[in-house]
Simulated assay, not measured.
Amino acid sequence: MGLQTQLRRAVAVFRFVALGYPVLLGALAFEDLLHPVAAALLVVVLVAWTAAVSHRYTRKGYEDLVVYADLAVTAAAVAVSAWALAVDGRAVPISLGPWLAGVVLAWGAAWGRRSGAVAGGVIALFGMVFRGGVSENTVNEAALLVLTGFTVGHLVRLGVEAEERTRRATERTAAAKERERLARDIHDSVLQVLALVQRRGNEIGGEAAELGRLAGRQEEALRALISSEAYQHPLDGRRDLRELVGRHAGGSVTVAAPATPVRLPAATAREVAAAVASAVDNVREHCPEGTRVWLLVEDDGGAVTVSVRDDGPGIAPGRLAEAAAEGRLGVAQSIEGRVRELGGTVTVVSGPGLGTEVEMRVPRPRTEGEADGDAHRSR
């Protein structure tokens, strides 16, 4: 049960309890009421509305139309109570008292501290207009309502943010434990097999030695992956894409990147790095030994672009479509699929004898702070 759900239930209980204030005072002064029938009808309407709106909030949450209607009904109740709860011999009618704070609490919980303060101000203004103008009682009531709306809205926002941080921390802990378990399983199975293939291939020689070399390369890449910070803490902050892409540097692969960090959310950086790794693997698999590869990382602020270019034999026109139709989905899924899920695009430029260039462009996601700001924006 989340904080908002508990708060809505607490507010519902408060509103029913607060109804006791005008009901009790009205009952004690019933013989002196100028309009006792109207007072009784007003109480019935207040009870019915409180029950209906509390049920709606508890079941459906704070819906815009219902929250606005709640304010309108409460303001109308203030105006009507000035006549229906008038007492013979008293200049000021009986007040609805704490019940008025119910709608202020709803506005603050639904839309934040400024909205809560606005709702309190509106109800206070109706009280001044219909209950004797500006006086000590109406000014005190106004101050209490405005401060209540502002304070509750602020506390609710802090509580929701704390609840979200706790949820994220729990997810990070669970994800880290799962990845540690997978890393152990990979070490005890896949890595051991790859090491065995490399060793036996070198012993046999010939084509087996080439298989052993490829197995050794994959073993190194897999060990680097499961020991990397990006793998061990995939949800912890942001990652520098240069570090992930830079692991390919060496031998026939040249990496060029900005001098400053190219920071992306960990999940985004990991997917981009996986797409780049797939493109580099394609070069090693389909191009002759010694084919040179250039990796270029660019960051223009709004998007990050990684280009993988080689001087291999190139790709014949239509070959990528044929490979996808044959079920060989290295480019279609490992590269284009990953980048497309990130909202980016992939451009492949190639031709026989011209080499191949794969350009992956990914928009820079908004930071969590920006997203939280939108989520808690007050109306």
Rank of each mutant, 00 (worst) to 15 (best):
A69Y: 03
V37H: 13
L46D: 07
A48C: 06
P36A: 13
A52I: 08
S54E: 02
A72Y: 02
A39R: 09
W49L: 10
V73M: 08
L41Y: 04
H35A: 14
A51H: 07
V45D: 04
A84R: 06
A51R: 12
L71H: 03
V45A: 15
W83S: 14
Y68E: 12
Y62T: 02
V66T: 14
Y68K: 11
W83Y: 15
A76N: 05
S54V: 01
A72S: 13
V73L: 04
A38V: 11
V44D: 05
V53F: 00
R56I: 09
E63Q: 08
V73N: 01
D70P: 06
A75H: 02
A39Q: 11
V43W: 13
V53G: 03
T58H: 04
V66E: 03
A69I: 09
L85R: 02
S54I: 00
A77M: 04
Y57E: 09
G61A: 05
L46I: 07
L46C: 12
V53N: 01
V44I: 15
L71M: 14
L46G: 06
V47H: 03
R59A: 12
A77W: 00
W83N: 09
V73C: 03
S81Q: 11
Y68T: 10
G61T: 00
V44P: 09
V44N: 10
V47Y: 08
V78I: 14
V80R: 08
P36W: 06
A76S: 09
A79I: 13
L42F: 07
S54G: 01
A82E: 08
G61Y: 04
Y68A: 12
V44M: 15
A51W: 10
L85H: 06
